[in-house]
Simulated assay, not measured.
Amino acid sequence: MSRIVPVVLCGGSGTRLWPRSRADKPKPFIPLLGEKTLFEETLSRCADRSEFGAPVVVIGEKHLAIAQEQARPIAPDARFIVEPCGRNTAPAVALAAHAVDPGDIMLVCPSDHFIAQPDAFQEAAIAAAGLARDGWLVCFGIAATAPETGYGYLRRGEALDTGSKVAQFVEKPDLERALAFVADGGYAWNGGIFALPAGLFLDELAAHRSAMAEQVAAAFDNARTEDARIFPDAGAFGAIAGESVDYAVMENTDRAAMVDVSMGWSDIGNWDALMSKRSADDDGNVVLGSGEIIAASGTMIDTDGPHVTVVGASDTVVVVDGEDILVAARSAVQRVGEASRCKSQ
């Protein structure tokens, strides 16, 4: 039987979690929920070698050393594809597809997501791999528990043995449409987790994005290899017009399927999302580090040093990291990435 090979994607800088997440040590590599980092948790979910093969980590050179260090005790057999530049997820997954056998099932996992129920994830991965072996490109359809406007959605189509066809990929909706999706019950969140037969994925990429497929192949064929590290050719890879897996392949193929899963998932995309996964008191307040909240509710303090006191400011996030301080309304945390210092550190 073909292997399930985890493909862990480590792109992005996580600027919406500034000042904790920074360019030199972004969101996947810092402990935000518990002692392990999100990257370590991602590898740990696929650590059973009776079910999963050695992972392939796609990463930029800037974060290679920290990724290797964190992977070593969990997945010492991991291989690393070191992108010379970021070109979004479709080229990254295509590089991984060249690095594995054509019959392998790539379990594509972002490195910075939180999953509260790893057993449910593993069961869904095995079910998705079964569909993938039957010639489907499979998305995880994550139970839509709230009308989120920051996620894309999948509309469930014709039933298959262990899942269903994807009838429609839906872009991030406004609140009215998101409420309708949840009420309808036929929609799931698209969390960017896939089970993809490597050979079929490359065939579909060639069919729908032929230039990208050729450039990725050239970058891989002319790669430099050092131990467990693969360095694709910078010139060929840099010429690629970046695009996501969804846009390049999944929305164009007629082989898109989905498996439904409820696993306590979050992409931890901002401070409000992170707060929702932390333990709160009876007033909905969260305090990490030295701090107190008085006459307020729904507020979080996260400080690595100074004592912080918040009085009467509900639904507020206060983060102290070294010399940097963030104070934001929870309704505005999506804009944290706009801060000028986020981009420079």
Rank of each mutant, 00 (worst) to 15 (best):
C10N: 11
S13G: 06
G14P: 05
G14R: 12
P19C: 02
A23C: 04
P26W: 13
F29L: 10
I30M: 04
E35R: 15
E41S: 15
T42D: 02
T42L: 07
T42S: 14
L43S: 06
E51W: 09
A54R: 09
V57H: 05
I66P: 00
R72K: 15
I74K: 05
D77F: 01
A78V: 02
I81A: 04
P84T: 10
C85W: 03
C85M: 12
A90N: 07
A92N: 06
A96G: 02
A97G: 08
A99D: 14
P102T: 04
G103N: 03
V108D: 03
P110Q: 05
P110H: 07
P110W: 07
S111A: 14
D112E: 07
H113Y: 13
I115C: 05
Q117T: 03
F121C: 10
Q122M: 01
A125E: 12
A127D: 11
A132G: 05
D134H: 08
W136L: 09
C139G: 00
F140E: 06
A143E: 14
A146H: 14
A146N: 08
T149K: 03
G152E: 13
Y153W: 15
G157M: 09
G157C: 07
E158A: 15
L160P: 02
L160D: 01
D161E: 15
S164I: 00
A167I: 04
Q168T: 11
V170M: 15
E171N: 12
V182T: 08
G186L: 12
L202D: 05
E214M: 10
A219C: 08
D221R: 14
T225M: 08
D227A: 13
I230P: 02
F231Y: 15
G235T: 05
A236H: 05
E243W: 00
Y247W: 03
D254M: 08
A257P: 01
M258F: 06
D260H: 08
S262T: 01
M263A: 10
G264Y: 10
G269K: 06
A273K: 14
A280E: 11
D283P: 00
V287N: 10
E292R: 11
I294D: 04
T299A: 15
G305S: 14
P306S: 06
V333A: 03
R335N: 15
V336C: 04
G337T: 09
G337V: 04
A339W: 13
S340E: 15
Q345N: 09
Q345M: 06
Q345W: 06
